[in-house]
């Protein structure tokens, strides 16, 4: 289990990660999503023991990660900014990994490289961006880590390879209880595979929820009443992103669906629609509520 408690990290005046607390259960896949510059990559680097936190703690199974070789042996981090020197090849990088990680499995690397149809002797300057990413993932998976940190790793992979990599990861999770943290800009991708998702914005966790809970906790409501009314009519309900156009009001409501329907029904609306919210809609609403929007355009771009 990974436990993050009150984690803070700043770079000069800029606080990249602000009082973040998360728990990632062993053998689960945790998705991290956020706005640009939210602090996702910084959080990953803190988790990998690359950055030293300014405050708070990160523990893996109770042991801190900073300068702890025993813990770091079990972690592999695939960065969004890959380190694959142009003059090196998969084979030579494999030797470096073997020198650094005791659990590195060369046979697994050979097998993965073969399936991915990569040339292990070719230097990385001959690889495309996608191939470099495939190589980085193959090297990482060959370490057979207990904790796999993937920062926007699937972005840049084609759909076929994405499916294959995910399959390998699922097998590791099932067989060895590997814990995976991954970040992506594609919410659809995270919806398909993550057990739990967190939304990060300006260094803070905005939302941290089990995926199933999220699907059953937020609803898009459209309701209409006679006469004039305002947001105050819905006191007692947890609502956000309230919009009104004449008699019709729409908003996001949080809570039990039955309860929401019952309470709105008691108000005798002319119209009532309660619809489930997609993850994307939920996150966009959450960020808009925090002021993260592109705003109104006055001129055509």
């Amino acid at each position: 289990m990974i436990e993050i408690k009150n984690l803070t990290k700043g770079f000069g005046e800029n606080i990249a990660v602000k009082d973040v607390s998360l728990t990632v259960q062993k053998g689960s896949m945790f998705g991290l999503v956020g706005s640009n510059g939210a602090g996702k990559s910084t959080l990953f680097r803190l988790l990998a023991g690359i950055y030293k936190p300014d405050g708070g703690s990160i523990t893996y199974g109770g042991a801190p990660v900073w300068e702890n070789t025993a813990v770091k042996e079990k972690i592999i981090f695939v960065s969004d900014d890959l380190y694959l020197p142009f003059s090196q090849s998969i084979r030579s990088m494999g030797k470096l990994y073997k020198a650094a990680y005791k659990s590195f499995d060369k046979e697994r690397l050979d097998s993965l490289v073969s399936v991915l149809r990569l040339n292990p002797k070719a230097t990385f300057n001959t690889f495309s961006k996608g191939m470099r990413r495939q190589a980085a993932i193959a090297l990482a998976l060959s370490v057979r880590p207990d904790y796999l940190l993937l920062d926007e790793t699937f972005d840049g992979l084609d759909i076929v390879m994405r499916g294959f990599i995910k399959q390998v990861i699922y097998e590791d999770m099932a067989e060895r209880g590997t814990t995976v943290l991954l970040s992506s800009h594609s919410l659809k991708e995270l919806e398909d595979c993550a057990d739990r998702i967190a939304l990060l914005h300006r260094g803070e966790i905005v939302m941290d929820s089990d995926l199933a809970d999220a699907a059953f906790s937020f609803f898009k409501v459209q309701v209409a009443f006679e006469g004039t009314y305002g947001e105050s009519r819905f006191e007692g309900l947890k609502i956000r992103d309230y919009k009104q156009n004449g008699k019709v009001a729409s908003f996001i409501a949080e809570g039990d669906r039955g309860d929401i329907e019952a309470r709105l029904g008691e108000m005798n609306p002319l119209l009532l629609d309660v619809l489930p919210l997609s993850l994307e809609e939920l996150f966009v609403c959450s960020l808009e509520a925090m002021g993260y929007t592109y705003g109104e355009r006055e001129t055509k771009i």
Binding site: R45, I50, E67, T69, I75, S79, Y83
Partner: peptide, 16 residues
Amino acid sequence: NNRAASDFYHALPQKR
């Protein structure tokens, strides 16, 4: 002096 390389080596399970 290279961000990606520096991160890689600092992530290795070796004491600095």
